[in-house]
Design a protein around this nucleic acid. Structure first.
Lengths: 358, 358
DNA sequence: ATCGCCCATGCAAACGTTTACATTCCGCCG
DNA sequence: CGGCGGAATGTAAACGTTTGCATGGGCGAT
């Protein structure tokens, strides 16, 4: 680390300016000189001092990712997507995760100030006030899956609406005459969007269908309780679409216990495609979110904000959802019709149906 | 970001030096002056320019994490552990993951040069040569779960040996008279350590036991094939300890298909406690690694290298393994004896046994 | 052949800190 | 009463780059 641009300059018999020029832009420097400089730099294992560079260029070549307390696959995939996209653009990735409360997140956000050129923010605690409060004026940011309605920053969301719409249509196409939707916690953005998708799909249905909406809270227990209650009351619908897999699995447990057959008596579908979904019995039909895609798109969007996106290439659309049809809803007949060519990654008993893009 | 230390100095009617002193160390500055300066800094929302600071202090307050292509929970947990520990120390975390090959990892490592004070390296491609080649001389580093034998850098490993030893002892205590170990790929460090643990446990056994070692490659398919082969040959042992859960689950699939009862006919154990392990039928007995702990320990170790560890506090021991007893090996009787007090996080049907610390 | 222009290169300022050293001021002791 | 020491504060150098501007030399045009 002791070797600086001056050392290279001296060794190559040029000025520091020429070294800088040779290494960076191709601003006028004779090819032979450039080669000599590059050679010396290589030989000396010169690596530019990024802090010094940042000081003058006011760029850090780094983006920050502010994430909530995420577990398992979701976190991994999100970071993977972000990381790969960042690397492709030559950007570094500064991560700050596991923020359980707003003040922690705020502190982390502030401490990133000046270390990053832009920031990806995903946090349940983010609202407009939080942002104006803690996000410094000039810092480009992209919001991920957040409820904050602001046109100040681009926002990327999982296509909750589209996914729920597609899944509900799928169930409707299965011919179930009564369908229940199990919602998530009040005020949860994902949950309300999924409900909206469900309602719209029901509304557009041409064949009459009895639908109802039940209140869950995204926990397995709430699913379990609801299923037990419905069974006890004898009011089980023919199909249930739970707003997340966790609740669906809770219901599945209860139904199995009660001797209700899935999908023969009740078809069941979830949302998220959590890893366990394919291992429950029967495997759960669900909506899969392409999480790595979400991360990648977010970073690309941020690149646009940073004015480093290549103008030519089109920035990807919002990350989409896929319906993954497994045994928990008995529509093997028509799903086969939808998708003859099954993706190679899908197991033999799985069928993927691209979700509607919104 | 336009507000610099000069602005604060001017506004507070002091020199930049005093501002610097007031904000950093408590080097002689009158309390009243300090308060005034702090007030002004707050009012102006001054945040020090980290690049400028790094330039002169030659510290970045950032550590890098170089990780291979990790999936799911392992990655999440590792980062979580690192992130939390780093935050506790006021360090930032620069992540570069998903490196599939040595040259990518090397590039990433070099590009971190100068942006970090130290680096956590976890990569299957890391050996001594790789390190001397690509890790700049003065950069502190801690190796995670790597085979590189070097006393130049501290190395943290999962306690593969101890975990396998404990699990094998557990099986031996279950009274199985024949036990097979299914190994991992040749040259894989984890795999060979686990095998070593198995062998040592067998060797120390007082009651005679027939043991054999089979060759797997960590894939589900290899487990599946092996189990089918053993069953066809009629050479199934009473207990099988697979070097990872993935293979164990492959075997479980095959055994279930063949009508072999687990654990009644064959007891089965794995290693890793991947999320699915508890959802297969029967749930898999396995060795759990405290991955977040691994990350935390690695960062603490790095802090020591960086001379920023508080001298008083003892650095934690190496991260340990836990045996998680589930239904796939039928030793409910004696495992209950081992652990009467089950951790609150364990489900009703799970028993945790602390692994041997090495 | 002379003049001007452009290209390659060098010089030096600037970026925002920290910190060694200089200065000032005050109180205390001789 | 004068000098001295120490605490509070100021001054300026240094960190390693990038980049606007200056310089010089070669070459084409007149």
């Amino acid at each position: 680390m002791a070797v600086t641009i001056k050392d290279v300059a001296r060794e190559a018999n040029v000025s520091v300016a020429s070294v800088s020029r040779a290494l960076n832009g191709s601003a006028n420097v004779m090819e032979v000189t450039r080669q000599r400089i590059l050679g010396v730099a290589e030989k000396l294992r010169y690596v530019p001092h990024s802090a010094a560079r940042s000081l003058i260029t006011r760029r850090t070549q780094t983006v920050g990712a502010l994430l909530p307390d995420l577990f398992g696959e979701f976190f991994s995939e999100l970071i993977r997507g972000i990381d790969l996209a960042a690397r492709a653009r030559g950007l570094h990735l500064l991560v700050s995760s596991s923020h359980g409360n707003p003040s922690e997140a705020a502190k982390a956000l502030r401490s990133m100030q000046g270390r990053v050129d832009g920031v990806l923010v995903m946090s349940p605690h983010v609202d407009a006030r939080f942002l104006t409060e803690h996000l410094s004026e000039g810092l480009p940011a992209v919001l991920i899956n957040t409820v904050a309605h602001t046109n100040k920053y681009p926002t990327l969301n999982i296509d909750n609406y589209g996914g729920a719409l597609s899944m509900t249509r799928h169930l409707l196409a299965g011919g179930y005459e009564s369908i229940a939707f199990v919602g998530g916690p009040d005020g949860n953005f994902d949950a309300s969007e999924r409900l909206r998708g469900f309602n719209d799909a029901i509304a557009e249905s041409e064949t009459p269908v009895r639908s109802r909406v039940l209140c869950g809270d995204f926990t397995e227990e709430s699913g379990y309780r609801l299923a037990k209650k419905l069974h006890a009351a004898g009011t089980l619908p023919r199909a249930v679409f739970a707003a997340n897999d966790t609740m669906a699995i809770g219901m599945l447990l209860a139904l199995n216990e009660s001797g209700v057959r899935v999908p023969d008596d009740v078809a069941l579908a979830g949302f998220d495609d959590i890893p366990i979904a394919r291992f429950v019995n029967p495997p759960l039909t669900t909506v899969r979110v392409r999480i790595a895609d979400l991360g990648r798109c977010a970073l690309e969007e941020l690149a646009v904000e940073l004015d480093i996106a290549t103008p030519g290439e089109a920035i990807d659309d919002k990350p989409s959802c896929y319906i993954v049809v497994r045994a928990s809803c008995g529509s093997a007949n028509q799903s086969a019709a939808v998708s003859g060519d099954v993706g190679s990654s899908a197991s033999k008993k799985e069928i993927e149906i691209p979700g509607r893009r919104v």
